[in-house]
Write a protein that binds this DNA or RNA. Structure first.
Lengths: 220, 220, 220, 220
DNA sequence: TATGAATGAGTGTTCATTCAT
DNA sequence: TATGAATGAACACTCATTCAT
């Protein structure tokens, strides 16, 4: 695991795109260089503050302080606090959607193990970046209908991909099993990221991959 | 699994004890019959409101309304909102401590499966009652040092018990594995209780027990 | 004009009734003596501040200061600022409805003049008390649908009563004429109350009554 | 009444003058062609937005959007929002001053009626264009001393002209009577313009002229 | 023991005005 | 001359906690 769960480097490609398209500022006006920079600062600051304080406890004041800007500026880019979460959720959902397509077959042998391990690595990496958003989804803290639905869809997609690979491998792959796996993945990622656990990253990944491979993908 | 995850009946024995001892009202004075009744109503109301709204979103107003009493009365029994959570946490921690002692050996055969299944049943039942408290612990929503620590201890005890039985069964039972199992159990219980999943209870229990037995307790 | 446009004495009868019935506090809970007193203070303060600053420019802060209470208390009695206006509007609408029933026949002779004069006196007195509410209606500053409608109804009732008496007296009493009269009455009352004019009250009333009698009630 | 209360065509002559003289931009410098054009756009936009939203509720943002320019530009031409109102008030006051000189004698016969009717027509036309400014004056929404005074003067001039003609016609023409007439005119114009009334324009004018002629200009 | 009432610090949001380019 | 961006004071409203009876 060369990359591990270290803070994801800014995938500026995505931000660059979504910052102007999916999450355009209030009146839908176009942003120039400076504006895009500020919006980026706000999105990053939002992610950081959400991570530290949690989505619910995060204060607009915390966010603008973290972004080294003012209240007024915040509302220049987002109509309200929820909208910032929404913007981040859009990014995250896209990332998870991409992720769900990357899972190859997971046979019982070593190659299956490797495939799974690599997938888990990617999942944890995404979680390290978008953890607060994913948690908000999981913990039912998202009021916004649309945003909530995006979360359901993103997770359903991953669950579907995992289920398909389970059944290919001869395992049951029923809904309850898949849910249990999703539960394990999401919460374990949270443990890792919140540093409740401070295991060696590579070893931990080995262990989890082993357990999941054996418990969820073994033929009935 | 005759009982399933249905609402646990009030284990009033515990409440009676804790109401006067561990979570004595503000002035530390002994409670008479009426006082004990009011305190019970507040604890029950707290649990209900925490379950409905979540610990964070729960308002003192919601709680006193649910307990059919007044703000003034609430603060006669608890110095602040946190203290109510603490009182419930004490109950919950005790319940989980009890639980951790009930796990027998989990061999690879059918008897191990049965033991595990029965343990999971008990765990989910406890979760159905104390879910909000456990979630508050897990989701890092507990500010209070002491309360937070109680959660850690309760979960460590269960983890230790599980780890011991894993190693007895010849499995690795290392910390990462145990954490993954705890993650699975807690979050899956949350899914169940919050009705994000609506599977048949018995079947679900079978499935999870199977997965866990195979994935976590199998000899290396 | 014995009574004149002096500050209306508190018609506490009405307040007593409406304070608890039509304009019940937030959760609809019953008010005790102290609560009713506070609500009364808020309603009076609201009226005063609306009069001084205008409905739009009135700050909750001004109102609670005038009522010698706190922000929190205000929101204990009204869900928002608009609701205070609504409560006052209910009172005012009732007063105007009553007023509209008190206009007797207005023949061409002295008795008609006296009837009209007495009605105008009552109208100006009401305006002195509820001026801000009436202005808010007239100046289209009321966002609330329902409140706005109450204003329309109250004024339509008065207009209808006036029109009926005009036609009885042999005057046209068409809609445009009635509207012109309502315009005159409302704005002139505003002039009087806002002390843009500082005429002798009795003389002024004589003059207006004469003009209206001659201009609007004379046979075609 | 050939013209009625339809939107007044831009009397650009006036605008041209005032744009450079009375309401010079912040720095007091002369405006070139482009500058005059921008200022004109701002004045027109101001009038439009004031009419739509009301002076109080009008936002600088609305105005610059309507003028298809930017915040920065606005403050290049006006030191603050109030100054825009002031500039419009200067135009309006001039218009009303002109108006006050156009009222000829109003005898009791048909010619007096015609004179009055024609004057009312002109007044309502002016109101259609400058209604928001006049309302701001009337409703005491103007903070600025000087602007407020301009309003008083403009209305006093008209009132004086009306009073003079009343007395010539043998009517009392005292201050209270004149005020009542001004009240009627202003508010009725507002009703008309704000489309609270939607009468046929010509008929309405006939009616009001009749009422006013009979009520205010008849010999005592 | 109980309660309705009161409080005020804290939070999200708006908008006139200023700044940098 | 023009503009997009930034600012922060002001305001409505919430809610844990305290008070008076």
């Amino acid at each position: 695991m060369s990359e591990g769960y270290k803070p994801a480097r800014q995938r500026s490609t995505r931000r660059g795109t979504l910052g102007t398209a999916a999450t355009a500022p209030v009146q839908g006006r176009e942003l120039r260089a400076q504006g895009r920079k500020t919006m980026g600062r706000l999105l990053d600051a939002g992610m950081r503050v959400f991570a530290e304080r949690g989505v619910h406890a995060a204060r607009v004041d915390d966010i603008v302080r973290a972004a080294r800007t003012s209240h007024g500026t915040f509302y220049l880019y987002f109509p309200n606090k929820e909208a910032l979460l929404r913007a981040l959720a859009v990014e995250c959902a896209q990332e998870l959607d991409d992720l769900s397509t990357t899972l190859g077959a997971v046979p019982a042998d070593e190659t299956g193990y490797a495939e799974l391990r690599s997938f888990l690595d990617r999942f944890f990496t995404t979680y390290r970046h978008y953890g607060p958003v994913i948690r908000a989804w999981m913990e039912g803290q998202v009021e916004d209908r649309e945003v909530s639905h995006m979360g359901v869809k993103a997770f359903t997609d991953i669950a579907t991909a995992l289920g398909k690979r389970m059944r290919e491998a001869g395992a049951a792959g029923d809904d309850a099993t898949i849910s249990a796996l999703m539960a394990l993945l999401e919460r374990f990622a949270y443990f890792l990221v919140s540093r409740r656990l401070d295991f060696d990253a590579d070893d931990t990944l080995d262990t989890v991959a082993t357990v999941v491979h054996r418990g969820f993908f073994a033929a009935a």
